[in-house]
Amino acid sequence: MRELAYLRPSDPADAVSLVANDPDARFLGGGTNLVDHLKLGVATPGTLVDVSHLPLDALEEHDGGLLVGANVRNSDLAADRRVRTGWPVLSRALLSGASGQIRNQATTAGNLLQRTRCVYFLDVTTPCNKREPGSGCSAAEGYGRYNAILGAGPACVTVHPSDLAVGLVAVDATVVVLGPDGERRVPAADLHRLPGDDAARDTVLGHGELITAVELPRSAHARTSTYVKVRDRASFAFALVSVAVAIDRAEDGTVRDLRIVWGGVAHKPWRATRAEDALRGRPLTEAGVRDAAEAELDQARPTAGTEYKPAMVRNATALAFRRLVPDLAEEAR
């Protein structure tokens, strides 16, 4: 048995200092991801600092928007009536992920900080830069079906698995972080990073930084938002690709503002800004949406196993718009 210390502080600041001062310590949320890694030997912390009992489970009105405590369970967040009407993309993203049991256990913060499902990352007998920096990337020329097509490499070609993270970028959420030097706010879009030559770091957070909450600003586009997730199995599967779309349209149907965010294509939720720019201020057509997606996909670099992803994400984007804009569906008839 590997002995490890299990601590359960009652104050967030204590939790932060316990981890910040011990390079071998890790936060533990619902444990649905980290405990698997302990069993597989993928994570080998000496100390677990359980933060799931900290009083970070508020789900309340705040500053005109909604404040989601780090410990709000995925199932509670998905079911909340305010979320379902003000930020429907979040409910849909959450409900498309994992299973009922896991969503009951998983926390908001843990969901954002879950690690890749790359098969080589999870198999300690194969090289992986993310698990063991400098050992190499087995996925680059290996099993590639789930690999990235945007912003990949050179160190790592995997994608971030969280559905919730993709939705949060589409609604301009902010992640509230408590660190040894106090609190800071990180836009959800900037939380995860591209791998560059440092595969080990998934996010911009430093060791000992605790996510305490996520802030959801109210917006017209967040209210008209949805999530399309494409996967082989009807449930209980990570995305092949996924799309979060949020739009605000003027009376005449032209797009006032929008967000298009892709999952399953990059090491972070991929905000398709080129596609957004192509559509902003214009009336919507399905062909226009497809062209806009293609404009974004100019930068895509599919590799063996991911040849299908550009077409799939383009189509899924068109589908998401159809779901939000009934006249698009009409037009296609």
């Binding site: 098969v119 198999d123 009807a234 449930s235």
Partner: peptide, 25 residues
């Protein structure tokens, strides 16, 4: 079961990566 010929073993070696039909299917 995806066998990686560079290593020789099956790399989809759990039920999250070796998919069997779920209830919803």
């Amino acid at each position: 079961s995806v066998r990686d010929p560079r290593f020789g073993h099956v790399v989809t070696q759990d039920l999250a990566t070796y998919h069997v039909a779920a209830h919803a299917d």
